[in-house]
Amino acid sequence: MKVLVKKEALCIGCGLCEEICSKAYFKENNVDKSCIQVAKGEANEINVCNQCGACIDICQVVALSRGSNGVVRVNKKECVGCFMCVGFCPTLSMRQHDDYIEPFKCIACGLCAKECPTGAIAVEDIDFETKERL
């Protein structure tokens, strides 16, 4: 399964990943609209979906599902905008912005990883057991 993996020790908190993500999906540079978010400080903490799928089971309208590549996606057509998945995400990586009535999340597209200057993030194709260990 594809997942964006992180090495926080390498992160310098430049914010480039956030810019790339929000521009790619929402056509604006706005950290609040980025699927990956970095709490910048002495230790930069990268928050991004690890594709665990806990959200899939709590969605009443089955708008969340795992695709063939293992990535969890939001089906906006089915989503009724309750944001339960936002409150119930174990890593608080499901995003919500008041401009939209559906949540959004990292789909491990890798656009941000490609540009990361330090290699702190990368898309990897890993099996479930490896993921469990991570």
């Binding site: 989503c79 009724v80 905008g81 309750c82 944001f83 339960m84 936002v86 409150g87 119930f88 919500q96 008041d98 009535i101 559906e102």
Partner: peptide, 27 residues
């Protein structure tokens, strides 16, 4: 055609904030 904003609220943001806070608390 149910969506999350069919009530056409005056300020969706106030509702979202309260809702997500409670979802998280329940979680």
């Amino acid at each position: 055609g149910t969506k999350g904003d069919l009530n056409k609220p005056a300020d969706q943001s106030l509702i979202n904030k309260a809702g997500i806070t409670l979802h998280k608390q329940i979680h």
